[in-house]
Nucleic acid binder design. Structure first.
Lengths: 233, 233
DNA sequence: GCCTTACGTCAACAGGGTTGACCCAATGTG
DNA sequence: CACATTGGGTCAACCCTGTTGACGTAAGGC
């Protein structure tokens, strides 16, 4: 019943409202829905309504909701890395990879939050690994270090991006509560029991900001330092 | 109606099945439920059944499900940090915080997977933040830097830990398939299109290992370098 | 021993994913 | 051109979910 059928041989029968469904249109509409009405807008029923078809029609194209999410995630990955070519500066290039991955996830947080921890060994990812390790090799790291350090770098990037995506994927209410807590809860603490927090009190609202770029920059600094140390010896 | 009441002044009225409810018992049961039957086993109704009470009784202790999730997260933090006291070496202490947090999450992978990216606003978390920022202050960073750098550090630690927890929370079959892919998929690549991967081919099985400690060490290196630069000026 | 009220219980609602039956029309074939 | 096949859009139904408001009972202060 729910076996996905090759796109090519579809009997494109229009829905009651005249729309011609397709895997592509569904993914596209799902992304639009998330973008316009927030992450929690993605449900089979709402997606059906947005498409102008019965909600259950989607099960002709995807086994279940999870299958749909994976299809969306696959498109996100492809879009994020589209057109990237590494430049001369290996650190700057790694930085761009990081920002691209993150931007791709944040553009569609809910889909990313659901799929980020799953490993899809697809061509796009393999190409990305090739690129990343290549950059560390040009930095002068021996193969063993290049592989291990790339892993540490990309895992950090992916983990951060997934965390930020998961945060954006929260219902607006919880998201704002999390944000506010740095302004509210952490402001009225007893100075005796929390001396350090009291000292940095004025900086705490900034804790709601993203730490993605600071963290990436710290990593790149450490990598650059180690690369310099290699050259020195 | 759902106002949380201080634990001390409770009217401990037994449920129909004779259990005396408490915030503590509920969190503990929730953790057991998640650990045994997966994250999707946590629902108000199932938790009520496991506790031997009406599901809606939980709303006397937590505003809503999210509030419960935050309580679970905070207990994990508390357990992880129990008995920790910062030592003289701020970097070593931060390292221990990182390892403790990670261990706490890995002890409850499935619960961690759903709670790791939240701000709990609860005592255990606040204490942990106080400790961490305090360490960076003793390292010599001015308050603004201490707050921002602590955020970058702890976010990285939490993100990594969440990723590892999510991985452990996967069904064994998928987990092992993921592991194998580094040995299998990445071994038979065309050297012409993937020169870098071919060069580091022998190192790739190690990609299945955790990158947690390498990443933390890179961050601590960068922090130490910045701290030295501060002293120098 | 009374009064207050905390809190356990119950019924109900809105929304979610998913299934199986139904049936029409698009398509390939004769 | 007409027919048989069947893909796929539709519908009704099921069981899940979180959450609310009313209700009444018993716990604890006085």
């Amino acid at each position: 019943m729910t076996t996905r059928v090759p796109q090519e041989r579809r009997r494109r029968r229009p829905t009651r409202s005249g729309v011609l469904l397709s895997e592509d249109l569904i993914v596209q509409t799902a992304l639009r829905l998330i973008g316009e009405h927030g992450p929690e807008a993605l449900s089979v029923r709402r997606l059906g309504a947005a498409l102008g078809c019965d909600p259950t029609a989607l099960y002709r194209y995807f086994h279940d909701t999870d299958d749909l999410v994976l299809a969306i995630a696959d498109r996100i990955i492809g879009d994020a890395m589209a057109g990237f070519t590494p430049g001369d500066d290996w650190a700057a290039s790694l930085r761009e990879v990081a920002l691209r991955v993150r931007a791709g996830y944040l553009a569609h947080p809910r889909a990313a939050a659901m799929a980020a921890h799953r490993v899809t060994r697809r061509p796009n990812e393999i190409r990305a690994v090739e690129t990343g390790i290549g950059l560390l090799l040009t930095a002068g790291f021996p193969p063993a270090d290049a592989a291990r350090l790339y892993l540490a770098f990309i895992d950090t990037v992916l983990s951060h991006a997934a965390t930020e995506a998961a945060f954006l994927a929260l219902p607006a209410q919880q998201r704002e509560a999390d944000h506010r807590s740095w302004r509210d809860v952490y402001q009225d603490l007893d100075p005796a029991t929390y001396p350090s927090l009291t000292l940095v009190r004025r900086e705490l609202p900034a804790m709601a900001d993203s730490s993605f770029e600071p963290a990436v920059d710290l990593l790149l600094e450490a990598l650059a330092a180690r690369a310099r140390a290699l050259k020195g010896t």
